[in-house]
Amino acid sequence: MEANRKYSVLLPTYNEKENLPLIVWLLVKVFTDSGLDFEIIVIDDGSPDGTLEAGKQLEKIYGKDKIVLRPRKEKLGLGTAYVHGMKHATGDFIIIMDADLSHHPKYIPEFIKKQQEGDCDIVTGTRYVGSGGVYGWDFKRKFVSRTANYIAQVLLRPGVSDLTGSFRLYKKAVLEKLVESCVSKGYVFQMEMMIRARHFGYTIDEVPIAFVDRMYGESKLAGKEIVDYLKGLLYLFANL
């Protein structure tokens, strides 16, 4: 793989003290094994559990050029965390993923390979096709997920099988443009990114991923999220 390209991983964290060292270790391993230039930008939003302290320990172990801590004082949400992290990114490509070990770094070389094959602008992980899948989901969660995805597919016909996933690789300029033009929050934000990307004519490819539900830390699948999802979907349906 080409050595002159650099990859910046954005890791937004909120109460991920247990997960952060593990995900960082996995990331460093994958990048080192494949001989790629990288940096990991940790955007912690003042987690009360001491995630930032964990980050500082990792900074000492792996060095300031590999672990870039860019914390914020309070919980300001995921969307702005990406914007904040991106401002400090020095890579040509940006990889966005969750810090809770749901997204395994072992897929990153596949993302990169896919990106290079077609020189595409975005590569997104998908739980819904091929060898992709989930671990730790009960029937209800699978049903809700499949239904939500089906409705989005029918209404928006996006040409992307996993709209709400948040494990993606972007060309830096592409992500900058997209983040600037997206207005939604939460799951809908990820969805809007894909729909707008299509509108701008960006090319998108996919890599099947296994999504392993978080083992450490709090999880939340509330009724409110389903309502917000439907509202956001209708917003995109009517406006894009």
């Binding site: 070990l101 899948g133 499949r146 239904t147 296994a210 392993v212």
Partner: peptide, 18 residues
């Protein structure tokens, strides 16, 4: 949707590896 729920891969192996 029913078919897709039924054929949703359970990534047991991946979880064990992790």
């Amino acid at each position: 949707i029913g078919y897709r729920v039924a054929t949703f891969n359970d990534c047991v192996e991946e979880s064990r590896e992790l």
